[in-house]
Design a protein around this nucleic acid. Structure first.
Ligand SMILES: [Zn+2]
Ligand SMILES: [Zn+2]
Ligand SMILES: [Zn+2]
Ligand SMILES: [Zn+2]
Lengths: 136, 136
DNA sequence: TATGGACCCTGTAGCCACTACAGGGTCAAG
DNA sequence: CTTGACCCTGTAGTGGCTACAGGGTCCATA
């Protein structure tokens, strides 16, 4: 193993990623295949660490793997305009906003169903009533 | 086909469910197997319609299929206390709330990254900067 | 009576982003 | 020399559907 190279477990610890997830990223072509040691262990260098950190950070921000793939390849052409990157980020922000709005509406509806405390039997339960399609 | 019985397509239209989804619910034991016509078509009665409506309504409210299963079986014992049902609903509301909080935090972070309009090259893009692990 | 088209059947595979084995191999310490 | 931590490959499972492929049924119309 070259100087500075690390094994998959160390890479996992360094990036807060599970070992299986790293192998998964490699299998789907998101993370480049590293070289191997004599014992067939993966040997990662600093470039892999940077790449995987980028991926994890993007994932933590909620980007899909396809978006991450695009972000990675776009950010490799350092002299290109960054419009495409900005567009992906803005679109993701818009999607997050939409999801929040959906969940807020859902929360409203759930609150109106769960409402104040009530105890009794199933036959008079307001939650069951709200779920059932027909009047009793 | 008995009087009042309907085919899967009609049940799908009546409940806003896809035909494949109905068959899927049957396969996982969520919706009871209906009787069959001579031509081996599923023949649903009013009970199925009610059951599927309950399921769809619960799904629309964001309950998981396991929760729906529990809600269904709990709501069948009409004379039991409804505590268990209420607990499921309250727990779900709590989860929705947590999800909203997560997304709000995410939105904040994304906004601080996307920020004001900025155009330039990838090498100076603040989004790329926010994603990359190391200083340039 | 033939034929077209709308509907139905079963079974399998795909989606996303992992996660969890099973059944082995490698390597360093004690 | 053995133990135990780590690594390897490959496959299958998660949730909640959705989309075929390759047939069968049923009814109306020409
Ligand atoms: Zn109640
Ligand atoms: Zn009822
Ligand atoms: Zn930019
Ligand atoms: Zn950089």
């Amino acid at each position: 193993m070259k100087a500075g190279a690390i094994k998959i477990g160390e890479l996992a610890r360094a990036t807060g990623t599970k070992v299986e997830t790293i192998r998964f990223y490699e299998k789907i072509g998101l993370l480049a295949e590293p070289s191997r040691t004599e014992g067939n262990y993966r040997a990662y260098g600093p470039a892999h660490l940077g790449r995987l950190s980028f991926i994890r950070r993007s994932r933590d921000l909620g980007f899909s793997l396809d978006q991450v793939r695009a972000l990675l390849s776009l950010s490799d052409d350092r002299n290109q305009p960054c419009d495409a990157i900005d567009l992906i980020a803005r679109e993701h922000l818009r999607a997050v906003d939409a999801k929040i709005a959906d969940l807020m509406a859902l929360k409203q509806e759930l609150q109106s169903i769960v409402g104040q405390s009530h105890s009794g039997s199933v036959s008079t339960c307001r939650i069951v009533e709200a779920l059932e399609p027909l009047p009793h």
